[in-house]
Amino acid sequence: MNTIFPIAYVVWLGLWRRKDAYVLLILMGAMLLVLSSLNVFGLGGKVVYIADIGLVLTWLFSALLAVQIMARELPAEQSRGTIHVLLAKPVTRFALVLGKWLGAWAAVSVATLVFYGTVAVLVYARGGHLPGPATAQALGLHITALAIITAITLIFSTRMNHDAAAAISLILTGAAFLVIPRIPEFVTSETGFTAGVMLVLYHALPHFELFDLRQWIIHDFGMVAWPVYTQILLYGLAWITGCILVAWMTFRRRHFSRGDRML
């Protein structure tokens, strides 16, 4: 178990040293540009809009980062051949999978914190403010959702190359965000096969809308009741655990001979 943290730490160091932090800067720049040009679109730069759009962008960027960062880790171990150095140590496949996930998730979480900070600063600059406790709650669930996204990506990255794993994970995450919450509306108007497929999807994909407290921040609804909050966290934890176990099972039986380097 004491191998998990060194592995996670190297993921983290790699992200910094390979200048991936620039991506974060570019995304922040994009966010600043969009938020400060709201005036131009006649929205008057109202604080509510800044917070709203800023948080939408934060969700979008953090999810993209989560998939991109996680999808690369295990495939890169194989294409570089470093997997052989790593697995020759008393490192279990489980520790490897868990360490990689932990490192990627920690990095994405820090990036998300930076995005929230950016939004908060911009809102303050326009004379508004983000409600502290509600924002903290929202951040907690947001980071939990990112843990699920990274864990789903981890599964695909155990058997696919970076691009394939990233593409599938993005499609699934996008579907879960955009389609799943609307399914109940569809299902009432559809019947038969389509409705069936929809229902299966509804239950098979994670409900990210539960983790999305943007409205609570923007409209200052106060805080989510703790029992509810805890239930959502537990739901997230179940997803994370399940995905990591599946990733471990698909990774456990993998062979690492030279042929795999060509993948």
Binding site: N2, T3, F5, P6, I7, Y9, V10, L13, G14, R17, R18, R80, G81, T82, H84, V85, L86, A88, K89, P90, V91
Partner: peptide, 22 residues
């Protein structure tokens, strides 16, 4: 390994620290 390669973003010393910790 036959074609040794490792985390090139680490320094030599950091690599040894990492493997020692494993």
């Amino acid at each position: 390994p036959e074609h040794p390669d490792t985390y090139r973003f680490l320094s030599g010393r950091e690599l040894l620290q990492f493997t020692g910790r494993l």
